[in-house]
Simulated assay, not measured.
Amino acid sequence: MTKNVVTCECAQVAIELDGKPFISTECHCNSCREAAIRLEQLPLARPMLERNAGTQFVLYRKDRIQFLRGQDLLEAFRLGPKAPTRRVISRCCNSPIFLEFQSGHWLSLYSSLWPEETRPKPQLRTMTGDRTDKVAFDDGLPAGTLQTWRFYANLLGAWIAMGFKSPKIRIGEEAERDKTTR
C-alpha cells in the first residue's frame, strides 16, 4: 500500500497515512463554520474555510493512521462541553489537524495538511442546507442538504472493513501518559 505523510505547519506533528482515503468531502454545517471562525482567531498557519465557506476534509479509517511524532502536542477544541465532536489542532503552530466524531471509526483530517498540488479533491459536499447564502455551486460536485447516501455508504464500508472497531485516538497529555507507561 502507498504511504503518505502529512505534517503541521512547523512539522513537529507528523502523521503517516496508509493507502488512500475512503472519501474526501467539503462540509458546510453550522458547527464547522463556527469552529473555523473561532479557531481562525488563533494565529493559524493554515486556513480552514474555503472561499465558499466550506471546510474540506480527507477521511481515513483510524486503523490506517499512525502518528510518527507530536501526538503529545495535539490539543482538543470543542464548541461546547457536550459537543459530540472534537477538533484537534497542534499546540506548536495552531495548525488544524483533524475532526473526530465521538465513537467514530474514522478521522476527518483537514485537507490543508496536504500541499495544494497533492491535496485530495472533494468528492462531495455535505450539510449544504445549513448555508445561509444559498448561492449555487457551479462545479458539479454532488451536494446534499444533509449528509448524502454516498457519504454514509463510504462510512459504513470503512467500518465493516475495520471489523466494526473504533480505535481511540489519544492526544496531548493522554498520549504523553501512554509513552511513559510503556
Rank of each mutant, 00 (worst) to 15 (best):
Ile171Met: 02
Trp114Arg: 02
Pro47Ile: 09
Met162Cys: 05
Trp149Ser: 11
Gln147Val: 13
Met1Arg: 12
Leu141Val: 15
Trp159Asn: 09
Leu42Glu: 07
Val6Thr: 08
Thr132Lys: 12
Val13Trp: 01
Trp159Ile: 06
Thr2Met: 10
Pro167Met: 11
Pro120Gly: 11
Arg170Met: 10
Trp114Lys: 03
Phe57Ala: 06
Cys92Gly: 02
Leu44Lys: 08
Glu16Gln: 15
Thr145Tyr: 11
Asp18Glu: 15
Phe151Gln: 05
Ala161Asn: 08
Leu17Tyr: 07
Asn154Gly: 11
Pro43His: 13
Gly140His: 08
Ala158His: 03
Ala45Thr: 13
Cys93Asn: 03
Trp106Ile: 15
Arg64Gln: 14
Asn94Ala: 12
Ile65Cys: 06
Asn94Ile: 02
Pro21Glu: 03
Ala14Arg: 13
Arg125Pro: 03
Gly172Ile: 00
Lys62Met: 10
Asn30Ser: 12
Leu141Ser: 05
Ala36Arg: 00
Leu155Thr: 01
Thr55Lys: 01
Gly172Trp: 00
Asn94Val: 05
Gly54Asn: 01
Glu26Met: 11
Leu99Cys: 11
Pro84Trp: 04
Asp130Met: 05
Met127Val: 06
Leu68Thr: 05
Asp72Gly: 09
Phe101Thr: 10
Asp133Phe: 10
Gln12His: 15
Lys179Glu: 12
Thr126Gly: 09
Lys20Gln: 08
Thr85Ser: 08
Val58Trp: 05
Gly157Asn: 06
Ala136Lys: 07
Phe101Ile: 12
Gly140Val: 08
Gly129Leu: 09
Val58Lys: 03
Trp159Thr: 08
Met162Lys: 01
Glu174Met: 13
Asn4His: 13
Lys121Val: 15
Leu68Phe: 05
Thr2Glu: 13
Arg182Leu: 14
Thr181Ser: 11
Asp139Met: 07
Arg177Asp: 09
Leu141Trp: 05
Gly19Met: 05
Arg91Met: 10
Arg51Gly: 13
Val58Phe: 07
Arg61Leu: 03
